[in-house]
């Protein structure tokens, strides 16, 4: 299979500008779903090898996951124009994967933290990381089952977010909803840019 940017037959001599967006969040929050719904390619998987076996395990509704020696990372692609391409990287949010995040977030436009409101605490480490590293991010509450247990204000408070971080609802299965999340993030990044400039 060829995954070249020009696999749709519009080969030009231009090397596109590439931009990264990180999709983070707890296990099972819908990262792969979001990448898949908005990407023009089926999400691809790549992996980074862990130097030693991790002793911690994920929990999926209490079911233990086997730990592995590699960390899988999903990614997708959105071609804005022939010379501008956005890459989405869905990546596990647990603290033990932070060694990968430094690499991933370098030069990134920003990050989406996907939250499952039944397990809000799962996205604390992601939020911690992006706040600490001054990376623009938005929180998207994935409301796939229509069960809206809390108001967005309550969620904002529970996550101890500063008022300027957008908190929105989304349905990661829907392309338009996922797109709106990305638009919100990019607009937030622009707003932060202005704030920084005029401070």
């Amino acid at each position: 299979m060829a995954y070249g940017v020009y696999d749709h037959g519009t080969a030009t001599a231009v090397t596109p500008v590439t931009v990264k967006i990180i999709i983070a969040g707890g296990f099972g929050a819908g990262k792969t779903t979001l990448v898949g719904s908005v990407s023009e390619i089926r999400p691809l998987q790549t992996e980074e090898t862990l130097s030693e076996r991790s002793e911690l395990v994920d929990s999926l509704y209490g079911v233990e996951q086997k730990s592995t020696t590699t960390v899988a990372m999903d990614f997708g692609r959105i071609t804005i124009r022939d010379d501008l391409v956005v890459y989405l990287f869905g990546t596990p949010g647990q603290r033990r994967f932070w060694f990968m995040w430094d690499d991933l977030s370098y030069g990134a436009l920003g990050a989406v933290v996907l939250a499952d409101e039944r397990r809000l605490a799962d996205c604390f480490p992601s939020i911690d990381y992006f706040e600490r590293n001054n990376i623009p991010f938005v929180v998207a509450v994935n409301s796939f089952d229509d069960a809206q247990h809390h108001s967005l204000e309550t969620i904002t408070q529970a996550l101890s977010l500063s008022g300027s971080v957008p908190v929105i609802r989304c349905d990661a299965r829907r392309r338009t909803s996922s797109r709106d999340v990305l638009v919100t993030l990019a607009e937030h990044a622009i707003a932060r840019h202005h704030t920084a400039r005029f401070r």
Partner: peptide, 25 residues
């Protein structure tokens, strides 16, 4: 190797193009 742009950090024009492009999806 063509280096990627650190769009988030510096280039407002690219950010705006990303917003406009995403809206058209």
């Amino acid at each position: 190797i063509h280096r990627s742009k650190s769009a988030g950090l510096s280039d407002l024009k690219i950010l705006q193009e990303v917003v406009d492009g995403l809206r058209r999806l």
